[in-house]
Design a binder for these strands. Structure first.
Lengths: 189, 189
DNA sequence: AGTAGTGATGTCAGGATGTGACATCACAGT
DNA sequence: ACTGTGATGTCACATCCTGACATCACTACT
């Protein structure tokens, strides 16, 4: 007899996203998710701290992409460090994940509770990035400002990436958005 | 006989902050807050959508300060609009609220659930600001980038304001932080 | 083979959050 | 006096999330 079906975590994530799309986040219960994944409620909460978290697992790797790039970089200019971090993050969003990213984003935006968690994740990335920048010698408050700005660029570029009628790869959009931000804030008349 | 003690909302807010400080956010229940304010649990939820919200009521006014300044401004340069919005927000933080701001921030930072809500409020401000900027003729993606950047400046300046050993008024810190951001992102070699 | 872990899962009980439906009660306007 | 109206109370209830403990297949060591 088999012990238990492996990959419960992945099944739970898939079931959660499916159900959120089908009937909305508020309308789906943890029991439904667990049932569809073939496990009990208690097991759900062993894999995810709360109902929302099933949509956010894996974001640790995104943090590592950002911070890892900064730590490994040989650049010294803070802006170059930020630029490399952005470039590294593009790896998280290959073209074949575009459709999945779109539906996931739609679900998140449709529910304030999920949007809330998403923002916390982004702030976590900004803080981790600021920390890495400080370790590379960037002083405060520049490190914090640059960390947050980098995340801002990332978010705007991501929104552009998943928008209809846009077909440039993430990397292009990240670079273009950073450039736009610099222009917007550039000293001029 | 008196109908009911007026100001239930304010009493609830005060009771909530007090209890969060005394015993922590997770450790205080809605029942305790309601009891201290002299109302029932149900009444608490009529005033606030959830337990966290008791710490965030009033942030609507902050949004209005930001957006109102942009809408009333006679400036045309996007950066000037952002700068005026920041200046207007200072009104929300008079010197006499410094102590209160410190304890409230300490409570919020000590609990992820509260930090989450705080971030959502900030994003809401960024979006409202971007909208106002668009209405003043700022094109995308500049409007969104500037809206978010303005909030970033606000948050960093606020952190500096409540930090120990800092005694400059908010207005100075806002201007200085904006200047720092522009320098950090400025094109150079 | 036997035995003692180990790790993922199940079972059960229960507190806390948040909501819907309806009742009450003082006050205001007519 | 009659009729709202608005803030509050009462009750019932689904759902979320947690602690404590049991189970069961598999692994490693003897």
């Amino acid at each position: 007899m088999t012990r238990w079906a492996p990959g419960a975590r992945e099944r739970l994530q898939a079931a959660a996203l499916d159900l959120f799309v089908e009937q909305g986040y508020d309308e789906t219960t943890v029991s439904q998710i667990a049932a569809r994944a073939g496990v009990t409620d208690r097991t759900f909460f062993r894999h995810f701290a709360d109902k929302r978290e099933s949509l956010f697992a894996g974001s640790d790797r995104l943090v590592d992409l950002f911070t890892g790039a900064v730590e490994r970089s040989t650049a010294h200019d803070p802006l170059d460090l930020a630029s490399e971090a952005l470039a590294a993050s593009a790896e998280f969003f290959p073209p074949e994940r575009l459709a999945w990213s779109r539906t996931r984003t739609a679900v998140v935006l449709a529910n304030p509770a999920l949007a809330e968690r998403e923002q916390l994740k982004m702030v976590t990335i900004a803080q981790a990035l600021a920390r890495s920048l400080r370790e590379r010698g960037v002083p405060e408050p520049a490190a914090t400002l640059l960390g947050r700005s980098t995340v801002t660029v990332f978010q705007v570029a991501f929104d552009r990436w998943i928008s209809e009628g846009e077909d440039r790869p993430v990397l292009d959009l990240l670079q273009d958005t950073l450039s736009q931000l610099r222009t917007t804030l550039a000293p001029s008349a």
